[in-house]
Design a protein around this nucleic acid. Structure first.
Lengths: 218, 218
DNA sequence: TATTAAAATTAGGTTAGTCTAAATTATTGT
DNA sequence: ACAATAATTTAGACTAACCTAATTTTAATA
């Protein structure tokens, strides 16, 4: 029941690929996510299958088993609690936390995890608006939608961003778009689907279609 | 300049063996400290020597170079700051921190380390009374002595314990001996060198010679 | 249906870190 | 000084994770 750090990272990759889509994760997408060669993935998938953490076949790809899912959700919980800690207690910005949390998520101590949760006031969402599973593995659910799906003229609140890379987050910082900001969708351009939004103080900015798809609002 | 976790652990072992004694650390003592086979140590010492982190020869054993010392002190700093964090902020007892700190000390983030230091108020000693190197690598120095070296009748304060194992620390907890406790040395028994000390509230306890050697007072 | 392209796997190799067993080198007591 | 003992090193092998190159399998298309 004890996973290596590498195994944890594979399961996380399979989890995140499985979430945002159709069936399971295929060999190639996992390889890409972990920045390794597809050939290297095969072996590990076999191992994870033997250990009963995933179901795997060529047709459906890799999918987490119940046991695999449980372990992975715990890793996700750790990752997101640590990110919250870094922002709330250690003066990190949301664009700085990911890399460090990738390390911290592998620390093994249930007591530390529980104390962290308590210290932070049992948060439900991390600094990017991603849901934090509770100690039982339950995730809060929201009905957030990506910005391009919002009707023109509606006033909405940013609740989640679907890309935690420093480059994207720093771009949002520059545009003065942050979690819980209120904004109004003014126009969607026909030719490139870019979105014009009004921020507080009447300031208006254009967001590319690519960027706007990653901004979830309510 | 980037060390693997294993390399960091070797350097820490060499450091701690070099501190409490004569010349350098020999093959066998390192193996014992790391709970591995002496034959496995040889290779790594060669590697660390090649990378200029240690000087090594059969006569003098392994000694850290300036560069090796610098890196090791940083690891020690991290370990002790994390231990302090766990006790001060996360409700850990001094007998619970070591194992988790062994994991946390390998986290790589200068910002996190500095913020940790700041959050804790730049502590000079960890929960076992061990000195915490500052950001420049400087260690506070104390003139603490082991309990058996104290004259009968003197009133002293516990400032450090030289064994961080849970078993020893829990034993001290049972005896109600903790950091900063005031105690009076009443007697040293001839036949087994055990020490009789008076705690606050006039309570008296016997400490074996083994135990008393590990308790440092001022 | 046969060919081509894409995806997955196999084969063989590498590095870090470990092991056991055997061989070598030092140390030490008489 | 020399045998016994202790410490170290070498040799050879293992596992986890990765790689590249070649091959096989599956899917897509003319």
């Amino acid at each position: 029941m004890v996973l290596t750090i590498t195994e944890e990272n594979y399961l996380k990759a399979i989890f995140s690929l499985g979430c945002s889509g159709e069936g399971g994760a295929n060999n190639q997408s996992i390889a890409e996510k972990l920045s390794i060669n597809p050939a290297s993935v095969t072996d590990m998938l076999r191992r994870l299958h033997e250990k009963k953490f995933i179901d795997y076949n060529r047709a459906d790809g890799a999918k987490l088993t119940k046991e695999g899912l449980k372990l992975t959700i715990k890793t996700v919980r750790k990752h997101r609690l640590w990110e919250t800690f870094l922002v709330e207690k250690m003066n990190f910005s949301w664009s700085e936390v990911h890399e460090v949390a990738e390390q911290l998520e592998h620390i093994q101590s249930d007591k530390l995890l529980n104390e962290l949760d308590k210290m932070l006031g049992y948060p439900k969402f991390d600094p990017h608006g991603d849901p934090i599973p509770d100690a039982q593995g339950k995730m809060p659910i929201t009905k957030a939608k990506p910005l391009p799906d919002i009707e023109i003229g509606r006033k909405v609140r940013v609740v989640n961003v679907a890309d935690n890379s420093p480059s994207f987050l720093k771009y949002l910082d520059k545009q003065e778009i942050g979690l819980n900001n209120i904004l109004v969708v003014k126009e969607i351009q026909d030719f490139d689907k870019s979105v014009l939004v009004e921020l507080k103080g009447k300031k208006e900015v254009f967001l590319s279609h690519e960027a706007s798809k990653k901004i979830f609002v309510e």
